[in-house]
Each structure stands twice: as structure tokens, then as C-alpha cells.
């Protein structure tokens, strides 16, 4: 039996990121995260936590510590500015508007 505040029993389960594929042919989409002692339990917990209403046909779990992320503070310099590059979008080409099937 443990008592609250007993740091000897403190949970240190790993954090897992959960990705769910809602049906075949679609991408896995991040659903959330959970804690679990191993990958097998993580998949089972993910099923119970994120697919109670048929939200998915398949689950990925990934240790959160295995994810490498871009620096959110550097998004200005890291991501190319879309400013002045409207020509990358189809809507930029207005002269073709009346042309069918284009």
C-alpha cells in the first residue's frame, strides 16, 4: 500500500503520441497523447481513449521523446515567407478564369 506523496512510487510512464487512421486510404491524424508503460499498453489505451465511437481502423503510437520538432520560436526565419509568392497558387492566374476545364 502506498500513501500519497510517496515519491518512491511516482509514475514515470512514458508519454506516447497517438495517431488514428479513420478509414483505409486516409492519413493517420494526431489524436492526442497518453501515458503507458510500453507500446503494447499504449496501443490498447489509445483504443479505449480515442476510438470509443468507431473513430478509427488503425492506430499508431510513437514515443513522444522520439519526435523531433521545429523550433516554434523560429517559425519566421525557418518557414519561407509566402509574401509576394501568390503565383504559387492557382487563384493567381485570373486571365484564365473564363476558360473551361482549367
Amino acid at each position: 500500500m502506498t500513501s500519497p506523496g510517496d515519491s518512491g512510487t511516482r509514475e514515470t510512464w512514458a508519454l506516447w503520441e497517438v495517431f488514428i487512421r479513420s478509414s483505409r486510404g486516409l492519413s493517420y491524424v494526431h489524436a492526442g497523447s497518453l501515458h503507458a508503460p510500453d507500446s503494447e499498453m499504449a496501443v490498447r489505451n489509445a483504443r479505449d481513449l480515442y476510438t470509443r465511437r468507431g473513430e478509427g481502423v488503425s492506430i499508431w503510437v510513437v514515443p513522444a521523446s522520439a519526435i523531433t520538432a521545429s523550433d516554434p520560436d523560429a517559425r519566421g526565419s525557418f518557414f519561407e515567407s509566402p509574401k509576394g509568392k501568390e503565383y504559387r497558387h492557382a487563384t493567381y492566374y485570373t486571365k484564365t478564369e473564363s476558360v473551361p476545364h482549367l
Binding site: T9, E11, T12, W13, A14, P37, D38, S39, M41, P63, S65, A66
Partner: peptide
């Protein structure tokens, strides 16, 4: 919780899977 934890630790040792 304790049992799940020690099971995961043992499996991590056996398989080299990351546990925490």
C-alpha cells in the same frame, strides 16, 4: 500500476524497447 511498470521494465530489458 506497479505490475505494469515492472512488466514494461522487464520487456524493455529483453527487447531494448524504450520504456520511459
Amino acid at each position: 500500476r506497479e505490475a505494469a511498470r515492472s512488466y514494461a521494465d522487464r520487456r524493455a530489458n529483453e527487447t531494448g524497447e524504450l520504456a520511459s
